[in-house]
Design a protein around this nucleic acid. Structure first.
Lengths: 338, 338
DNA sequence: CTGAAAGCGCTTACAG
DNA sequence: CTGAAAGCGCTTACAG
């Protein structure tokens, strides 16, 4: 049992132990000025012995900048969010930055304000906003302009003044829809996840592909993010549908489960595509065709943009990566006669 | 396009704008001393107009304490870790704390040291270590004792001097194994995930149940954390197994997929149990019996313990919650004659 | 109720 | 190469 919390050693303790001035200790710690080898090793010894670590608050105060970045997001648990956070963290860590997370629960102005105040009162060098939904968008709008902010986002949005790293899910949805049409389906139905704006990139991409091909655009079936919501949404799906594109893999798996329970065979009766290529997509029976999105890579790109802004003080350009179709067993041509 | 980053207003700016002293502004901001209503509103106006937010680095420095806590973990993406982090974050946010995440990639001493230095140089009020694996354990051992630290853990471990919030997966595994035996299986096989110590709570609980029942303890099949590793592990499973307990649901789903591909029927030929009850467990066909673990609750309890330590300066006691069996369709008695 | 002053732990010119 | 001093932005006794 160890109740007592020892006093944290400070610079002055090291200086006293090593018998040198504060300035000298600071110089060996920062390495930003020459120090004799003898003094240096004496200081290092004291540092090691006392277990001294510079106080980041004091450093941040005097340096006028910190090496922590904040990640602001509506979720940390859903696949896309968690994977993006993971990518940001990894890249930040490699660059010597710490990361702080701030969850914004809703786009209610008071809640957004609370979150922003919490983050902005911290000594941060910059922030990334995960702009996958309406909450992210609302946060982005409310953010002060005195710290670099980069957004990680699905599809390009008009009028974004902040730098964005995109995944282009608009294009992914369009390609997926085109693919399904190319298989011979008359049209493609869509089970949507909640989205940033009224219409997400995914929904718009799907819609565009159908319109361009001159096909009927069926009513969208709205779902949440998880398998259960897909399961429920399957009830509202047009019974005549032969091809369905879902807003994410979780929803697709829920839809699949419900259809299979009803004796609908995938892909014989219905072709099903997910979105994201999250770890379970390949495991499902039949394995799920989907649109592969590199969220970890998105996170890394986003941090890299923020980092360059912090270092150079020049706002970076947007960046985009195209998703790729991952074709597995859940898609096929319609049954002859369907 | 907004390249310029405005200068951040400081306390002195507000004082100047309101025509009062620094002390007065500080008093209205902190609310820790009486200020006349007239002065107060004048100051608030200046604050609002300038968009002033106290500099957290300065506050942390002068207050000698901060309101951010660090979460130290080996992963942020796997279900149990992510859900625990989520619980911590939620509880911390409710208490007005910010959370910083620090990922420790391996138990290599240099890596552990790097992570700890990074965290300990920040102004933190406390830390929680997610102690689900060997890396968590190594980190816990290396942590200084000058800041409150609480660990979130699976099963009770001998000699833990730091407060732990447990989930008791030992007991969960024991109950799951007992249940499988009660169905009539001669023994239960185990596909293990990587673990804290040589033997995890899950593995020990399984082992204990078999030993207590006087059954044969089969060789453990080792897997990773994800479906793919379960899929691969299925190849190494004893073909005579009629009941299998997996270290987590992801692995169980991988095992299920492989078995089903080989024409093995679940639960007719093999009963399969997972662990954790993560969102996909209920979706699989057949839906997966598992051990429900409340990771979000674990995270909340862990933060609550840390919070009480921070406030009271008294080290909290350990806390434990028992898991519960979630029985679904993947378990049944052995086939007559099996 | 309000202001002037000291101090939190650092870094960085400024002198030697 | 090394030390004394000022200052980063706050808060908090200490005087009025």
């Amino acid at each position: 049992m160890m109740d007592a919390i020892d006093r944290v050693p400070v610079l002055a303790d090291v200086a006293a132990a090593a018998g040198v001035s504060l300035s000298t200790v600071s110089r060996v710690i920062t390495g930003r000025a020459p120090v004799s080898e003898k003094t240096r090793s004496r200081v290092m010894e004291a540092v090691a012995q006392l277990g001294y670590r510079p106080n980041a608050a004091a450093q941040a105060l005097v340096n006028g900048r910190s090496s922590t970045v904040a990640v602001i997001a509506n979720h940390t648990l859903r696949w896309g969010y968690a994977a993006t956070l993971h990518g940001i963290e990894e890249q930040a860590r490699a660059a010597g930055f710490s990361v702080m997370i701030a969850v914004v629960e809703s786009s209610d102005p008071a809640e957004v304000r609370r979150a922003i105040d919490g983050v902005w009162s911290q000594p941060i060098a910059g922030a990334v906003v995960i702009d996958f939904d309406a909450v992210g968008a609302a946060t982005l709008d409310a953010l002060p302009h005195n710290v670099p902010v980069v957004a990680a986002s699905g599809a390009w949005q008009p009028g974004a003044d902040r730098p964005h790293a995109y995944l282009d899910d608009f294009e992914g949805a369009r390609q997926a829809t085109d693919y399904l049409l190319s298989l011979g389906h008359h049209t493609v139905h869509h089970v949507a996840i909640p989205s940033t704006s009224e219409h997400s990139g995914r929904e718009w991409g799907w819609r565009r592909a159908l319109t361009d091909a001159g096909r009927v655009v069926p009513d969208v079936v709205r779902a949440g993010y998880d398998p259960e919501s897909g399961y429920a949404a399957a009830e509202r799906l047009d019974p005549g549908a032969t091809a369905v594109l879902c807003g994410n893999d979780e929803v697709a798996i829920g839809v699949a489960r419900r259809l299979q329970e009803r004796g609908v065979s995938i892909p014989r009766d219905v072709s099903l595509m997910g979105f994201d290529d999250q770890p379970f997509a390949a495991m499902w029976v039949p394995s799920l065709s989907t649109v592969g999105q590199d969220f970890v890579g998105l996170g890394k790109r986003t941090f890299a943009m923020l980092h360059s802004w912090i270092l150079s003080n020049e706002q970076p350009a947007h960046s985009t990566v195209l998703p790729r179709l991952v074709l597995r067993q859940s898609t096929a041509g319609p049954r002859p006669g369907a």
